[in-house]
Design a protein around this nucleic acid. Structure first.
Lengths: 216, 216
DNA sequence: TGTAATGTTTACCAACCGGTCAAATTATCG
DNA sequence: CGATAATTTGACCGGTTGGTAAACATTACA
C-alpha cells in the first residue's frame, strides 16, 4: 500500500531519511536561487537526482517541501542571536555577533537567500514565525542591549535598529553577492571581501557604539 | 497594419506614452511583489486596466517589459549616490546620503524590492549594468571617500564597504519591511520606524566615522 | 470626410506546471 | 523462500501561462 509521508507515524526508514535529506538539499538549492514561484518541482527533482513522482512521494506538495525547508533552516538561522550573552562583555558580544553573522553569510548564502526571497514576497508562509518566536527573541535581546546602554557600557541607541543594521549589513554579502562582486571587480574572486567586510563592520559598529570620554 | 512597439521609429503617440506609462507602473507593482517568475502578464494587465493582448501590443514579451522597467528605475535609483559631492563637508555629505537613501526606501519601496528581487536571482538581466555604469559610479565615489580619509576628515575605512553598508541598512527598511514590522509590533504602524532608523543610522555612521581627538 | 495607420478585443494555442494513478520494482522480515 | 509493505516510474490530466491570429474599433490627418 502507498503510505505518503504525512501518514507515517512509525520510525523512519534509512531510505526515508536519506531521500528527504537529498530532497531538502536540492530544494534549498533551487528555492534560494529562483524563489518559491520561480522554482519548479521538476527542477528540484532533477537536482535531487530522482523522478518527480518519487519526490512527491516524500513531500506531497511543493508547498509542504517549502514549509519543511523553511522551518528547518529558520531554527539554525537564529542561533547566532541566541548566543548573544547578557552576562558577557557588551562590546565583545556585539563584535562576535557580527562575526558569526558574517560567517553565516559566507558559509550558508543559500539559506540567507531563501529567507530574503521569502520576506521580499511578503513572507506569506512564515508571518506567524516572525511575529511569534522571532519577535520574542529579538525583544529579549533588545532588552539586554538597552540595559547595557543604561549601565553606560555602550552608547545609547535604539536596540531594535541596531539589530536590524547588523542583520542587513551582514546578510547583504550573501543576498547581494552578485552586486558586491560586480562592484568590487574580478580581483576579489576569493573570500577576501568577507575579511574586508569584517574589518569594516567591526570598526563601524564598535567605534559607533563605544562611549567616548565618559568621565569628561 | 500592426506595427509592434519595437518597430516604431517615429515620434510616439500621446496614447503610446500614456499606455506605456500605465503598463510600467502596473509592472512595477506586480514584479516588485512577486518577482519576475512569480508575476504573470495577466496580473499586470489587470492592474494596468487593459487586456493582455493589448498590453502585449506595447511590450511584445514579458521580458521586454521587465527590461524596460529595470533600466528606467535603475537610472533614478542611483541619483542619491550621484549627488554625493566631493567638495562638500564629508560628514554632512554622508549624513545626507543616508537620509536620501532612507527616504527612497520609505517613498519608493517597490523600486527597491524590484532590484532586490533581481539581484537575489543572480541579476541575469542587469549584470552588465552592474559591472559597467554602477561599478564606475561607485569607483568614483569611493575615491572621494578615500581622499577624505587620507585628508584626515573622516576615519580611515574601506570606502566600498562603507557604501555597501549604507545601501544595505537603508534598503533593509524597504526590502524587509514585513520583518521589520513584525519585530517592531503593531504600534509602529505609521512611518515612525523610518525616523527612528534615521536617528540610529546617523548616530552609527557619523560617530563611527568621526575622527576622535586627532591631536591628542 | 475618407482612409490609412494605430489601437483593442475575442478566441485560441502550445508549452509548462503541479499533481495523480496504477503498474512495476525493490526492500523487509517471518 | 514467500509475502507484505515500501519505493520508484512512465503515462497522463486539468489548469495556467506566455504569446498569437485576425477581426474589429478608433484615431490621425490629407
Amino acid at each position: 500500500m502507498v503510505l505518503p509521508r504525512a501518514a507515517r507515524t512509525q520510525r523512519r526508514t534509512r531510505i526515508q531519511e536519506e531521500k528527504e535529506e537529498r530532497i531538502l538539499e536540492a530544494a534549498l538549492e533551487v528555492f534560494s536561487l529562483h524563489g518559491y514561484r520561480g522554482a519548479t518541482v521538476d527542477q528540484i527533482a532533477e537536482v535531487a537526482g530522482m523522478s518527480k513522482p518519487n519526490l512527491l512521494y516524500y513531500f506531497r506538495t511543493k508547498e509542504a517541501m517549502h514549509r519543511a525547508l523553511i522551518t528547518r533552516v529558520l531554527d539554525t538561522w537564529l542561533d547566532p542571536l541566541r548566543e548573544f550573552d547578557a552576562l558577557g562583555n557588551p562590546v565583545a558580544e556585539i563584535r562576535s555577533y557580527i562575526r558569526r553573522k558574517l560567517e553565516m553569510a559566507r558559509d550558508f548564502p543559500r539559506e540567507s537567500r531563501l529567507f530574503a526571497n521569502e520576506i521580499l514576497q511578503g513572507a506569506p508562509n512564515i508571518e506567524d514565525e516572525l511575529k511569534g518566536p522571532l519577535k520574542a527573541l529579538v525583544d529579549e535581546k533588545a532588552a539586554v542591549i538597552r540595559s547595557w546602554a543604561k549601565a553606560g557600557k555602550i552608547a545609547k541607541c535604539d536596540p531594535y535598529h541596531l539589530i536590524f543594521s547588523i542583520w542587513s549589513t551582514t546578510q547583504h554579502y550573501a543576498d547581494f553577492d552578485v552586486q558586491v562582486r560586480a562592484v568590487l571587480g574580478q580581483e576579489n574572486a576569493g573570500d577576501g571581501r568577507f575579511e574586508d567586510a569584517a574589518r569594516f563592520l567591526e570598526q563601524l559598529f564598535i567605534t559607533g557604539l563605544e562611549i567616548h570620554d565618559p568621565a569628561n
